[in-house]
C-alpha cells in the first residue's frame, strides 16, 4: 500500500478499506441512527468518480440507510439522524446551511420498486426539470433522457400515455431516465432490479455500465452476483459495519475478511 500520501480516509483497519484518491463522495466516521438504534456504525470510505460502487450485505445491514443518507432522503424519517460527516466534493452534506432540495438535484436516486409518478411518460421526466427551473427545450430533454436510459425506442409513440402502462422493467428505466434528466453528478440506486425479471435486470445492468461514463453510480444490491457483474468497487456491510471495501475483483476473488469470504461464497451464518 502507498504509505507516503496522507490517507484521505481515516480508518483503523486500512487493509480492509481501500483508499480512494480524490473521491467524489467521502464518508468520515458516518453513523446513522434510528432513535437509539445505530443502523450504520462509523463508516469511513471514499467513492470513486465515474465508477460503479456496489454496496452489498445481508438484508437489514444498513445498505439502504447508508445510501439514503447521501441525498438526505433520511431527513424524511422523523427520528433518523446522522453523526460524523459525509462530504460531497468539499461540502459537508449535513452542514446546516446546505439545502437538501438543491443537493438532490446533484445526487439522483432510483428506488427498489419502480415508482413513476401518476403522470404521462413525458411528464414523468419533464416535471422534475420544470420544478428545477429548466429553461431549455423540454421535448429534447425528454428524448435525450429516454435515449440515454435505452427506453426511447420502446416509448416514443406513447409519450403522453400513462407511465403505469409500461412494464416493470420499462418503468424502472423510466425512473432512471427521470433521474438522469437532471444531469446529476451521482446516481444512487437502491436494489433497482430486485422487483424485475432477469431480462429487464440484464438491460438495466448494461444500461448502468453505459451510464458510468457520465455519472458516478452507487448501487445497493442484495444480489451479490449483480455486484460482481457490474461494479468496479464493492463495499461489504454487516450489521451496520463496513467490513470490507475494495475493487470488486479483489472482493470476489480473494477477500481479506473471513466474513466477506463466507458471504461472497454463500456460506453465511
Amino acid at each position: 500500500m502507498n504509505e507516503t500520501t496522507a490517507p484521505s480516509v481515516v480508518n483503523q483497519n486500512t487493509s480492509l478499506i481501500l483508499e480512494i484518491p480524490d473521491p467524489v463522495l467521502r464518508f468520515k466516521n458516518t453513523s446513522i441512527w434510528y432513535g437509539a438504534n445505530e443502523a450504520v456504525k462509523s463508516v469511513s470510505m471514499g467513492i470513486k468518480n465515474h465508477a460503479i460502487t456496489a454496496i452489498i450485505g445481508p438484508s437489514g445491514c444498513g445498505k439502504s440507510t447508508l445510501l439514503r443518507s447521501i441525498n438526505r432522503m433520511n431527513d424524511l424519517i422523523p427520528d433518523c439522524h446522522v453523526t460524523g460527516n459525509i462530504y460531497y466534493h468539499d461540502n459537508d452534506i449535513y452542514d446546516k446551511n446546505l439545502d437538501p432540495v438543491l443537493l438532490r438535484r446533484h445526487i439522483g436516486m432510483v428506488f427498489q420498486k419502480p415508482n413513476p409518478f401518476a403522470k404521462s411518460i413525458y411528464q414523468n421526466i419533464a416535471w422534475g426539470a420544470k420544478i428545477n427551473g429548466y429553461k431549455g427545450n423540454l421535448d429534447q430533454l425528454v428524448e435525450e433522457s429516454l435515449r440515454q436510459a435505452a427506453l426511447w425506442d420502446e416509448v416514443k409513440d406513447k409519450l403522453h400515455k400513462s407511465a403505469f402502462a409500461l412494464s416493470g422493467g420499462q418503468q424502472q428505466r423510466l425512473c432512471i431516465a427521470r433521474a438522469i434528466a437532471l444531469k446529476p453528478d451521482i446516481l444512487l440506486l437502491d436494489e433497482p432490479t430486485s422487483a424485475l425479471d432477469p431480462i429487464s435486470t440484464a438491460k438495466i445492468e448494461s444500461l448502468l455500465e453505459e451510464l458510468k461514463k457520465f455519472f458516478t453510480i452507487i448501487i445497493v444490491t442484495h444480489n451479490m452476483q449483480q455486484a460482481g457483474r457490474i461494479s468496479d468497487y464493492t463495499a461489504f456491510m454487516l450489521t451496520g459495519d463496513l467490513v470490507e471495501y475494495n475493487e470488486t475483483k479483489k472482493i470476489f476473488f480473494n477477500p481479506t475478511d473471513e466474513r466477506t469470504e463466507s458471504y461472497i461464497s454463500g456460506r453465511f451464518g
Binding site: 452476483q225 460482481g228 475483483k249 470476489f252 476473488f253
Partner: peptide, 12 residues
C-alpha cells in the same frame, strides 16, 4: 488465468 478466474467469480 487470474483474469479468467475473476471473470468466473464476478460474471457467473
Amino acid at each position: 488465468e487470474d483474469s479468467v478466474t475473476m471473470l468466473i467469480a464476478t460474471q457467473q
